[in-house]
Design a binder for these strands. Structure first.
Lengths: 258, 258
DNA sequence: GCCTGCAGCTTGTGT
DNA sequence: ACACAAGGTGCAGGC
């Protein structure tokens, strides 16, 4: 994420035309290409913004700088350090950022004319923060945390959101033999979910204190391709019934209830 | 504006319960008391937030710090400088920020548990200039009010925002035969817009003094399904060109200009 | 202050 | 890709 505090004028053209007169603002550029222009007041909403996918054009000292992409700067700059070229380095100061986006027949365009850069820093935040769960997935996790035996016979919960450096494992459990089990929870279990669980297991198995770790994919619905892939990688999978977890229905009945 | 980059876990409780697992995030605190928690993906929307008015509670080194208000820090810290207490100063590191807000009978609460502060700076941005924008439904309505013939041949405006007990009709006009016409204006005409116009017409036709009332949906863009539904209900629809309304382009040209 | 309707809504979910 | 529905909607304008 790149954070630029600058005196700037911003023009948006697309669905409508908008002009922000010159003032001090925060320009936030996320690594997914999002751009937000925030004032120090005005609450929740940015004064201007652009959602991905975006294309950037930069100018330094009034001259175009091809190839410099603010959204990718995080990978090329020391973490938390000022970006070279904020006016006190050997490069010309940043004078313009144009953010463009294809929007059907027309084009959305955010034109940021920068008068003065007060700060320009980049932070590499990793990917862990990106994983946020939908309402159903979250409820599933809560219910399964309270009844981990639905993920596997005799499972006991050790911790929800077990942290790893590539993101949190939904549930970390122990099986009846005290073996570790990583449980990945999804509303719909796809191949992508199996891949995710695979990455977690790789990571966890590198920890010598953990030794063998089993993997279980738990979801309301698991696609046939995901079942096959999980089995071929030695993982278990289980389809869970939300109504049963909520105690609204008897587990046995579901066998004949579909 | 205070910008804190920190490894943190965030809990929200209010309308719902939400947990953001421990990860690196940006905490943005505006001087109006707004708080936003951003990951470096996920576009426009913060992962968590609180709109003003808010009350803050801070902890440093696990101990409460009464009286320190992040939203007001901008007035008490040198511009662009790190806030004292980020771990390398003489104060204990920031370990927790609780943002509270009265919300009716219950309370909204954002609980940010901070594991590590990577950066903590304050910028005084002064007063931000207001946004100037045009092109929204408002402008469409103004332009069409000034040139109602774009809604239908020979239309004369009777009044904008014609009041009914289920809401105002955007434009009420008379056609060349002095028949009433209700015009609903949207930027994008969807089925929902047709439904809305339908409700207005139902209401207006109950008025014996009005008699027959035609309906016209006018929008910059009208979805195919909306066109079909409008036609099947005997309403007219018209796509209007903002450039033409503004007089920037010749109406006739648009017939061949698409 | 409450309420209503718009928003460059944004975002998810199903078709 | 597109239509639909919900949002911790946020936000402004009218009463």
């Amino acid at each position: 994420m790149r954070l630029i505090v600058a005196r700037c004028e911003v023009r948006y053209s697309g669905r409508l035309e908008a002009l922000l007169p010159e003032a001090l603002r925060l320009l936030m550029v996320k690594s997914d290409g999002s751009v937000m222009v925030h004032a120090d007041t005005g609450g929740f909403k940015p004064q201007n913004w652009m959602t991905p996918p975006t294309v950037f054009e930069l100018e330094r000292g009034g001259e175009p700088v091809p190839g410099e992409d603010p959204a990718l700067a995080a990978g090329r700059t020391a973490d938390g350090q000022p970006v070279d070229g904020d006016g006190d380095g050997d490069r010309a100061p940043l004078t313009r950022i144009v953010v463009r986006k294809r929007a059907g027949s027309t084009e959305d365009r955010l034109d940021i004319r920068i008068v003065e850069v007060l700060s320009d820093v980049v932070h590499d935040m990793g990917e862990a923060a990106a994983l946020e769960k939908s309402g159903v997935e979250r409820e599933l996790q809560e219910l399964l945390a309270g009844a981990p035996e639905h993920c596997g016979e005799g499972f006991r919960l050790v911790r929800r959101e077990w942290p790893t450096d590539i993101g949190p494992v939904d549930l970390m459990c122990r099986d009846p033999d005290d073996g570790w089990v990583a449980v990945e929870i999804k509303r719909v279990g796809t191949i992508e979910a199996v891949e995710q669980l695979t990455r977690y297991l790789e990571r966890l198995r590198e920890d010598p204190g953990m030794g063998e770790v089993r993997g279980v994919l738990a979801a309301q619905q698991i696609k046939p391709q995901a079942r096959t892939l999980a089995e071929s990688r030695g993982m278990d999978w289980v389809e869970v019934d939300l109504a049963v977890l909520r105690g609204e229905r008897e587990p046995a009945l579901t066998l004949f209830d579909v």
